[in-house]
Design a binder for these strands. Structure first.
Lengths: 208, 208
DNA sequence: ATAACGCTGTTATTTTTTTCACAATTTAAT
DNA sequence: ATTAAATTGTGAAAAAAATAACAGCGTTAT
């Protein structure tokens, strides 16, 4: 199979999310140009992306929504449910927990960590909060491969290293620092300050 | 001036953030290959990016850190301070507020909005929370051009339209929906569910 | 039956982005 | 002064991504 680019992966996830929000018994099929209108991408791009996961539509009816959701799900999620570890139960951590809760059957934050005694050993959104000292133990025991870092900047690097040691393969990092970890581990940075700066730049230059 | 791509803008913001965290009196200059090591980009890319804002380094000493920060700041921020409006003071809203507070002198969230009576008319991180009914009034009065949407998915579209009407030029959207608004307004989506799905995908496929 | 329609799948083309590679430049050493 | 060393700035090449364009195919209408 030809390798699929990171950008395509992201769009595929967008298509899936959109289709899930669209479930209605009235419409069974959808055309690439409709997806194009809804997403802002071009229809050619969408056909190409869908082609890349091996799914085919009908030249007359377009794509069968339910089947496409299923194919996208198999591609994006794989077979097995994936447990996720979240470190840091401040506002960011709680936000991720809230957003993900019950939304994606194959993804569940099964363990969270903090060092605040007021949070440790409590349950948030159905997710147990452990002391951060137990990070490696729990991650290894539950065979968790996905980690989310939602701690202050000065603690992020150490958390990342411990995650790497515990066998985590992908990290979603909300701390505004670049993480230094062994290659082979995927890191996605979501610096909120950067996001505001970027939007502010375009807001400013658009109106000039 | 040749147009600068969105990707370059994002990297420039990363360089600035990195350099700001680096302020020490010991080191006055930095080479592109050092920035490359720190960021994971190539040195050629970094030189090209810096070139694009018209800043020049010395072939022997590299880039003067303070001057580079200054040039980046002028390019990214412009002259005037930019006020920002935040709608939704749940976990995401509070997280953005916390992250940005005091970090970027030219960017300040000067007005926030919610419809929860427990939050309205209170001050969070030095930022007044108004009732969302007053959104247009305050945004117009304070001439705010940058908006952050941190409300539930089903309220996001309506907030976006009201922002657009009030003259907002750039929107940072944390709600997991595609916003439909007039062209000319820049929208940056930061769907947290999507971010987790993406990392989970790469974590899964990396270990196969 | 046949023709017309409007879509998908895919190849070709164009555009954008990144990397390569090296002349030019500045400083320090001799 | 001259040379050596190491970097920047940048044109050229390569790679990646997006777009265009259209053959071919089911379906429907006639």
């Amino acid at each position: 199979m030809k390798t699929i680019s990171e950008k395509t992966i992201e769009r595929l996830i967008i298509y899936r999310g959109l289709l899930l929000n669209l479930v209605s018994d009235k419409v069974k099929n959808i055309f690439s140009h409709q997806l194009a209108t809804m997403t802002g991408f071009t229809s050619a791009q969408i056909r190409r992306d869908i082609m890349s996961i091996g799914y085919s539509g009908s030249p007359v009816r377009g794509y069968d929504i339910q089947n496409l959701i299923k194919s996208l799900g198999e591609f994006i999620d794989g077979e097995e449910k994936q447990p996720v570890a979240l470190v840091g139960l401040g506002h960011v951590g709680r936000a991720v927990l809230d957003y993900l809760k019950g939304r994606r059957p194959k993804l569940e934050i099964t363990a969270s960590f903090d060092d605040d005694p007021a949070k440790v050993d409590r349950v948030f959104q159905g997710c147990m909060c452990y002391h951060v000292n137990d990070l490696e133990k729990i991650i290894e025991k539950e065979n968790i491969k996905v980690g989310i870092i939602a701690v202050p900047a000065d603690e992020a690097q150490s958390v990342a290293e411990r995650m790497a040691n515990a066998g985590i393969k992908g990290i979603l990092n909300y701390a505004p620092v670049k993480l230094n970890i062994p290659s082979g581990i995927y890191v996605e940075n979501r610096d909120m300050t950067l996001a505001v700066e970027k939007v502010a730049y375009f807001a400013r230059t658009a109106s000039e």
